[in-house]
């Protein structure tokens, strides 16, 4: 994106009729959304038992990500705050059910009924306070708390996010951890500023102890280390930098002896300097009174 839509307007205003239609008819956007949705479903790690699952699509928009869920054989319920986007979804006759709602107000779904949740490019909107009554921290808390409640035990949630900076990512991750989720961030293509994609992978319930977070993809498609570990390394470097002790200055100065003095005089004579002759007083300490 050339500029971040969160800065321009709230989502229900930014995605008006014209923008919603433009967004959905852009083949580039459609392709990106499909790729991200496939990856999110992959990270969701649903059991491969052939039974369709009931998934929640948060920020479903015009149903681009939901379409991928349907193609994989699952049922989904979509939630979005933009009525225009949802109207486009109705026109496209998406298979999932649609809800007009604000995720920052909490998700009004019964406890323990969803098999999983995905979200594509939506959660970062919660970090912006679009109204005087909005408090990003409280909205994130309401969102994650209600999400944790409606997911079944052992279910996962995968959110692809575009955090504006590290602080925003920390804010989102902390809110998720406080709500009871386990998990972390998976980064695909971490070294490419254009292709970099961040997925928040969260696990709900006891079996999260054994769950392992997938590795992010690299430029050549192979796995690479988590972004979290890179952050830790940076932290370590900073800490050691700050606490490096200063070198102690040596304080035990010893005077030079007669031998050193005689050697120095000889050296200066060899250089052609005018040097007083050696006598019995050479190198002797002067009287204190001098």
């Amino acid at each position: 994106m050339a500029s971040r839509p969160e800065v321009i307007a709230p989502p229900e205003i930014f995605y008006d009729d014209a923008e919603a239609r433009k967004y959905t008819s852009s083949s580039r956007i459609v392709q990106i959304q499909a790729t991200l949705s496939e990856r999110a479903l992959e990270l969701l790690a649903l059991p491969d038992d052939g039974v369709p699952k009931l998934l929640l699509d948060i920020g479903c928009g015009s149903g681009l990500s939901g379409e991928t869920i349907s193609e994989n054989g699952h049922h989904w319920i979509g939630l979005d705050i933009s009525a225009s986007m949802l109207n486009v979804a109705v026109e496209r006759e998406v298979e999932g059910d649609l809800l007009l709602g604000d995720m920052g107000q909490g998700i009004g779904i019964r406890p323990g009924v969803m098999d999983g949740a995905i979200s594509i490019s939506a959660v970062q909107w919660l970090c912006n306070a679009d109204k005087s009554s909005h408090n990003p921290r409280l909205r994130l808390k309401a969102f994650f708390t209600s999400l944790y409640k409606c997911l079944s035990n052992g279910a996962r949630a995968v959110f692809q996010v575009y955090p504006e900076n590290i602080d925003q990512r920390e804010l989102i991750l902390n809110a998720a951890m406080h709500a009871g989720f386990a998990g972390g961030i998976v980064v695909d293509f971490p070294h490419s500023s254009k292709k970099r994609k961040e997925f928040l992978v969260l696990t709900c319930g006891q079996c999260s102890v054994n769950a392992s977070i997938s590795k992010g993809k690299n430029e050549d498609g192979e796995s690479c280390s988590d972004d979290d570990s890179e952050d830790e390394e940076n932290q370590t470097v900073c800490i050691s930098d700050r606490h490096r002790p200063r070198k102690k200055q040596k304080n035990n100065k010893v005077g030079k002896g007669k031998e050193w003095l005689l050697r120095k005089k000889e050296q200066m004579r060899r250089r052609g300097n005018v040097v007083p002759p050696n006598t019995k007083y050479t190198g002797r300490k002067r009287k204190d009174r001098f």
């Binding site: 059910d97 809800l99 709602g101 604000d102 107000q105």
Partner: peptide
């Protein structure tokens, strides 16, 4: 409306 429930809450209901 059009099959989409409007679950948006007013500010005092949040």
């Amino acid at each position: 409306s059009k099959g989409i429930p409007n679950m948006l809450l007013h500010e005092d209901e949040v």
